[in-house]
Nucleic acid binder design. Structure first.
Length: 717
DNA sequence: AGCACGCCGACT
DNA sequence: GTCGGCGTGCTC
């Protein structure tokens, strides 16, 4: 008997679907409204568990519902829970005409469960096809996908699209390699530098499930430390998963794992591997051939068997936010996984997000930190140059760069490479008073003024109004300077000032992985900094104004994270490592950098967020769309009693020619956005209410204009 | 989204 | 009696 049977319409189609259709036909003609045929006379169905519950992959229309289908006898063997299937789905009765079935197209789905009876009071259609007998959707993965869908008020089918890669028949046909026996428990290595580091590894190796927020010491040891945690988990006979922000970080942990335990015990899941290779690796994990996974954010769903540890590096990096609906964040997905699988959890970073601090504050995770003298021994010396220094510094105004910075660069270049961190290009140049450096703001809405093209035209980044005659409200000055452009030019000038030294650049389109330990100027945008052999001798951080000037809740935390990430590549103070940050020394993130205290900074931020009712202490959702649609949505949604609606207010029109933000309005269209806030503990109720309201809208039909619902919106003023 | 069902008015 | 317009609701 062939499972290929019935793949095409026409005469080749198996007999039972035809018969089923005929039965439906006769049921209808007998005018029996909704017969309840529990038995199928004539149709050859599977003897045991003849009903398949199927998750139909058709958008958000019928969120999270299963549909029951009859299992024809010839598909019985292959139609196991977790396989991909194709079914007829569509309105109305499937007529039989000229021997062909009509109505309802073939669509994809997952077979979730086999049961004895359906509780659907109507005639069941048959499964059209089992796409392949590979059981891709395990019970655990389904449970995780459902939890993620609930957390983010999204559809189960949407989450499964993120969690299960597209099929490649060739990849499926290849047998996965034989699993290797577990490695032996690794030495603690540089984990010994942390107060509870060795204990954490011991707990993993002995089958425990420790949960930690790890503030990593600056320097390159983090990737090997992550790898040791993975090997310790494997040694206990369980699997491990590490999610990293980009391909370079994946390559480092990959290399560390290979050097600790050789090839064949871990898989690498990244987007740039190509669909077939990626699916092949994914299958090796799903089949249990490989028990450890490192990868970028899509790997957060990797179906590792018997999971003992989930780990995430640098959760503040925004590449951990999924771009596709419902836009889950890797940290939140791994939190759900740790809770569901009762496994270990490790959240590591040189810096510390407010969310990470909250995990410690709530007692859910324990801090994994080094003693103060370890930090002092590993971190570089940090010095600041603020507005006051600049004003007093005659040479700086002429040369556009403070004397202190010149000195640090000159000194550093004597012994090694010097890193210059400049703002990312594509940051719209924001303007400040050339005299007093106060940010130039719109006189109507206080939004940031931005330069338009090459000319002197100014436009507000929020309300879009033109500003023709700006003058500084602080000092009366009327000259402006573009901070971002200034930083780039400064980097160029540095290159000219040290003509004997090579200049390398690393940025968006051309990212360097490493640079040699010889004297060089390395100009890089945040996140693209190459690792220097032996560490940088010095770093110059020039983008303080651009980062801290953003009207964003995370501006301070983000600036600190990027500074710390760059400064972590610099040699320790004892080896002469120096960092100069051009930013106001009274600002809290700047002070946290000088004291090298990212955890303290995050804890203070967390306290303020709690007071102000901001995330992550409260949970927020954003509802956006055309004004009338948003208003209607808010009228009909049955929000939790303790929910508070802020707005709606008009969102800034996306300026024509600027890249459209994911989930934002089309250029030129006016949208409204409301924020909905609930106190701690009501997040699940809020998500459920928003999901129900969305589903109700969809059911009402196509006349309704879509609104976008986003849990944990990233940009709240 | 499709697509069939059904209620109601117009025409043979 | 029967055809067909479009509004409503379902899809196993």
């Amino acid at each position: 008997m062939s499972s290929e049977n019935g793949t095409e319409g026409g005469g080749a189609e198996g007999a039972s679907p035809e018969q089923l259709a005929l039965i439906r036909e006769s049921v209808r003609q007998a005018k029996t409204p909704r017969a309840k045929p529990r038995t199928w006379r004539g149709a050859k169905l599977a003897e045991r568990l003849p009903v398949a519950r199927v998750l139909v992959d058709k958008g958000v229309l019928h969120l999270d519902r299963y549909f029951d289908y009859a299992v024809p006898e010839e598909l019985d063997a292959d139609a196991q829970p977790g396989v991909r299937v194709r079914v007829r789905f569509g309105a109305g009765r499937h007529r039989v005409r000229d021997g062909r079935r009509e109505g309802g197209g073939l669509i994809d789905g997952f077979l979730v469960e086999r049961v004895a009876e359906s509780d659907y009071s109507g005639p069941l259609a048959a499964l059209a096809q089992v796409v392949s007998p590979e059981r891709v959707l395990s019970e655990e993965l389904l449970g995780l996908a459902r939890a993620v869908a609930d957390r983010y008020a999204g559809g189960l089918a949407d989450v499964l699209q993120l969690a299960v890669p597209p099929r490649s028949a060739r990849a499926e046909q290849r047998p996965s390699p034989e699993p290797l026996p577990p490695p032996s428990k690794p030495e603690a290595g540089s984990w010994g530098r942390y107060e509870r580091g060795a204990g954490f590894l011991d707990a993993l190796a002995s089958g425990g499930a420790p949960r930690a927020v790890w503030n990593a010491l600056p320097g390159p040891a983090w990737s090997e430390e992550l790898a040791r945690a993975v090997v310790a988990t494997l040694a206990s006979g369980r699997g491990a998963l590490v999610v990293l922000p980009d391909g370079r970080a994946v390559a480092r942990v990959d290399a560390a794992l290979t050097s600790l335990m050789g090839e064949g015990r871990h898989a690498v899941l990244t987007a740039d591997a190509g669909p077939e290779k990626r699916y092949r690796e994914w299958l090796a994990v799903r089949r249990g051939s490989v028990r450890a996974v490192v990868g970028t954010r899509a790997a957060m769903f990797a179906p590792v068997q018997d999971l003992g540890l989930v780990a995430l590096w640098d959760d503040g990096d925004d590449s951990h936010s999924e771009q596709h609906a419902p836009q889950p964040h890797a940290r939140e997905v791994l939190l759900l996984r740790a809770a569901q699988d009762k496994c270990g959890f490790l959240l590591g970073s040189w810096s510390c997000t407010v969310e990470a601090a909250q995990l410690v504050e709530s007692g859910w995770a324990r801090p994994l930190v080094a003693a103060r003298e370890q930090v002092r021994g590993a971190a570089p010396l940090v010095r600041t140059v603020g507005d006051g220094d600049l004003a007093r510094d005659e040479a700086a105004r002429a040369a556009r760069l403070p004397t202190l910075a010149w000195q640090a660069v000159r000194e550093g270049l004597r012994t090694g490479p010097v890193l210059v961190q400049v703002p990312r290009r594509g940051y719209v140049p924001r303007m400040a008073c050339a005299n007093c450096r106060a940010p130039a703001r719109c006189r109507h809405c206080s939004g940031p003024l931005e330069a338009q093209g090459s000319g002197a035209d100014l436009k507000c980044g929020w309300c879009g109004r033109d500003e023709g005659a700006w003058h500084c409200p602080e000092c009366g000055g009327f000259r402006l300077r573009a901070q971002v452009v200034g930083a780039r030019r400064t980097a160029e000038e540095l290159g000219r000032a040290f003509p004997a030294v090579p200049v390398r650049t690393s940025g968006r389109e051309h990212v360097l992985d490493t640079v040699p330990g010889t004297p060089a100027l390395v100009v890089s945008t945040p996140g693209a900094e190459p690792v220097a052999e032996g560490g940088y001798a010095a770093a110059l951080l020039l983008d303080g104004w651009a980062m801290l000037g953003r009207p964003d809740l995370r501006a301070g935390e983000d600036a600190l994270r990027r500074w710390i990430a760059a400064a972590s590549l610099v040699r320790p103070q004892g080896a002469g490592g120096t960092v100069v940050v051009v930013a106001e020394p009274t600002l809290r993130p700047v002070q946290a950098l000088v004291r090298w205290d990212p955890v303290g900074h995050a804890v203070r931020e967390l306290g303020e967020r709690a007071e102000l009712g901001f995330p992550p202490v409260s949970r927020m959702a954003a509802v956006s769309g055309p004004g009338e649609a948003v208003a209607e949505f808010l009228r009909t949604a049955e929000l939790p009693r303790d929910a508070e609606v802020l707005g709606p207010v008009p969102v800034a029109v996306t300026a024509v020619g600027r890249p459209r933000r994911v989930g934002g309005p089309p250029p030129g269209e006016q949208w409204d956005r409301a924020l909905i806030r609930v106190p701690p503990g009501s997040g699940a109720a809020l998500a459920a209410a928003l999901k129900a309201a969305q589903a109700a809208r969809m059911a009402r039909g196509a006349t309704e204009v879509a609104v976008r619902v986003r849990i944990d919106p990233p940009d709240i003023g």
